[in-house]
């Protein structure tokens, strides 16, 4: 089953001489459980694509289907509900609420979706445990390291058991150790069957995915399968003299 389907999707800004084709007619199917990375230089349209797929922006052409439901034409209320319940977002700069503890940040989406305070607490405890931060639950974000903050943000994205997690440069503000923390977490999520779409210009993030799409000037220029190989680093390390 495809969690996400995109058909001839376009987002254009401006007119005539100033026309910018941020996304210029792309097709994409993301099967359930796939970890997909979209990679390209800044300005290639990858963030716009992510926003269109998550209902944060409306396309100027084409269609977006989320689990068989068309979302590009959905009304504002339906779209807001969908963003709360069906999609989990992870951003480069974490976007945690600084006044709330790690646990409260994770509880928030459950409460906003109509869950009881008790259910929210239970869910937050479970998720923080899953991302390895049970011992940080009562900390405010500024007391956490970058990697920890992003893991809290991932826990929050998972709060309402979304159909898909959409991550925009999730390691953009992280050093290499913290990048590994977050990539380890994504690998765990993939192992549990979570569908993930990441846009990035970080080769290490892209290389962690099952599938990699390269984007340039609003179009896909390459679609590569990276997952499922068992080969050991034969080419990695030349042992010659």
């Amino acid at each position: 089953m495809n969690v996400l389907q995109v058909r001839d999707l376009a987002k254009r800004h401006g007119r005539k001489d100033n026309l910018v084709r941020a996304v210029d007619g792309v097709d994409l199917d993301v099967p359930a459980g796939q970890m997909l990375a979209v990679m390209g230089p800044s300005g290639c349209g990858k963030s716009t694509l992510l926003h269109l797929m998550g209902g944060l922006e409306r396309p100027t052409g084409g269609q977006v289907w989320l689990a068989g439901e068309r979302i590009d034409t959905a009304g504002e209320r339906a779209l807001a509900r969908l963003r709360r319940r069906s999609v989990g977002f992870v951003f480069q700069s974490f976007h945690l609420v600084e006044e709330l503890t790690a646990a409260e940040n994770v509880e928030l989406p459950v409460l906003l979706a109509g869950g009881s305070p008790r259910a929210a607490k239970r869910r937050a405890r479970h998720l923080l445990d899953q991302v390895g931060l049970a011992h940080r639950a009562r900390h405010l974000p500024w007391k956490l390291s970058g990697g920890e903050r992003q893991r809290v943000a991932v826990a929050r994205a998972l709060a309402n058991e979304p159909l898909v997690v959409l991550a925009d440069e999730p390691t953009g503000n992280l050093d290499t150790a913290a990048t590994n923390e977050v990539l380890r977490l994504f690998a765990d999520l993939r192992g549990m069957g979570q569908t993930l779409v990441l846009v990035t210009h970080d080769g290490r993030v892209a290389a962690s995915a099952d599938r990699l799409i390269s984007m340039r000037d609003g179009v896909f220029v390459e679609d590569t399968w990276l997952g499922g190989r068992t080969g050991q680093f034969d080419g990695l390390f030349a042992m010659g003299d």
Binding site: N180, L183, R184, A187, G203, R204, A206, A207, S208, L212, S214, E222, T224, L226, R229, G231, Q232, F233, G235, L236
Partner: peptide, 24 residues
């Protein structure tokens, strides 16, 4: 450049997978 990138990404995917398989 494209061909080189494909090869680098292939190797990076292998290396990255191995990094994550190692204990911290």
């Amino acid at each position: 450049v494209d061909a080189q990138r494909r090869e680098l990404l292939r190797r990076l995917a292998e290396a990255q997978r191995a990094v994550l398989a190692e204990p911290e």
